[in-house]
Amino acid sequence: MGFKLLSKLLVYLTASIMAIASPLAFSVDSSGEYPTVSEIPVGEVRLYQIADGVWSHIATQSFDGAVYPSNGLIVRDGDELLLIDTAWGAKNTAALLAEIEKQIGLPVTRAVSTHFHDDRVGGVDVLRAAGVATYASPSTRRLAEVEGNEIPTHSLEGLSSSGDAVRFGPVELFYPGAAHSTDNLIVYVPSASVLYGGCAIYELSRTSAGNVADADLAEWPTSIERIQQHYPEAQFVIPGHGLPGGLDLLKHTTNVVKAHTNRSVVE
């Protein structure tokens, strides 16, 4: 069995187990497998329904001669939608809004960016022009300005110390501490036991640490421990890039980060 097929099978099995364990909360999309990078042309966006009122959005972007996937989250909030992270750029984010209108038909009224990198804030200006209120932590807003990236308009308070959590509509926002970046936030959907790890969490097929220019490698494993301790009931975990899975993604990420750190020390 090929690795790609095995990865998709694991996603399907995880979703099936969740649907059985929580039949009222989960209505997993039966329309197909989780979209992969090879299936999404740059400039297009796919939506994948995880649970009743919960979707991931998947886009792709060219970077350094390669094409990478990027995940975000959409959560229903009454007759409105909360968006977590842009679709990595203005063109993708405009396509995301169009796809949401086509498939869901509810307005996106608020959006949260989970850290300051372009795959999370690139497209904020498109959201703002569409009347979406954009939010991020003060740290993310400051770092985005320093980096020359787009800056969300509103500040999220109460997320300055490791372990801080605040309720934001249908989700809980959690600051686990520094990891992929010093400002990275985690998003949890309690009604569906869905954990969105953003770039602080890796997919299972990833074996290298990737972009760690703004990471705190020493603190990252401790931050992941905080996530595990705060959300032990999480059933569906979405990484910032690639295929979702279960809580095993947290341990896998820790292993990859520690291996990278150990290699760096040896070198």
Score class of each variant (00 low, 15 high):
F3A: 11
S7H: 05
S7A: 08
V11G: 09
T14L: 11
A15Y: 15
A15H: 04
A19M: 15
P23M: 00
A25F: 02
A25Y: 05
F26A: 12
Y34L: 11
P35A: 09
P35Y: 04
P35K: 07
T36Q: 10
I40R: 06
I40T: 09
P41L: 04
G43H: 03
G43T: 05
E44M: 10
E44K: 04
R46I: 15
Y48T: 09
Q49A: 09
I50T: 10
I50S: 13
G53Q: 08
V54R: 01
V54W: 01
H57E: 06
A59T: 13
T60P: 11
T60H: 05
Q61C: 09
V67A: 07
P69C: 03
S70K: 03
S70Y: 02
N71A: 14
N71S: 06
N71Q: 07
G72A: 04
G72R: 00
L73C: 13
I74C: 14
R76D: 14
E80C: 12
L83H: 01
D85Y: 00
A87N: 02
A90S: 09
T93P: 01
A94F: 10
A95K: 07
A98K: 00
K102Y: 10
Q103N: 07
V108G: 07
V108D: 01
T109C: 04
T109V: 10
R110W: 14
A111V: 10
A111R: 01
T114C: 02
H115V: 00
F116N: 13
R120M: 07
V121H: 01
G122P: 02
V126G: 09
L127H: 00
A129C: 14
A129H: 14
A130E: 05
G131Q: 10
V132R: 01
A133W: 11
S137N: 15
R142E: 15
L143S: 10
A144S: 12
A144V: 12
V146R: 13
V146C: 12
E147R: 11
I151S: 10
P152K: 11
H154S: 11
H154G: 10
E157R: 07
G163T: 07
D164S: 08
G169V: 03
E172S: 14
F174M: 15
Y175T: 05
P176A: 03
A178L: 10
A179H: 00
A179P: 00
S181V: 08
D183V: 00
S191V: 05
A192Y: 05
V194Q: 01
Y196Q: 02
Y196M: 06
A200S: 05
A200T: 05
Y202W: 09
E203W: 03
E203M: 11
L204G: 05
L204V: 12
S205I: 10
R206N: 14
T207W: 04
A209E: 08
A209Y: 05
N211V: 11
A213W: 08
D214S: 13
L217W: 13
P221G: 11
T222N: 04
E225S: 04
Q228K: 15
Q228L: 15
E233R: 10
F236A: 10
V237D: 01
I238R: 01
P244W: 06
L247H: 15
L249E: 03
K251T: 04
K251D: 14
T254Q: 07
N255T: 04
A259H: 10
A259F: 11
H260T: 04
T261V: 10
T261H: 14
R263N: 10
S264L: 13
S264M: 02
V265F: 06
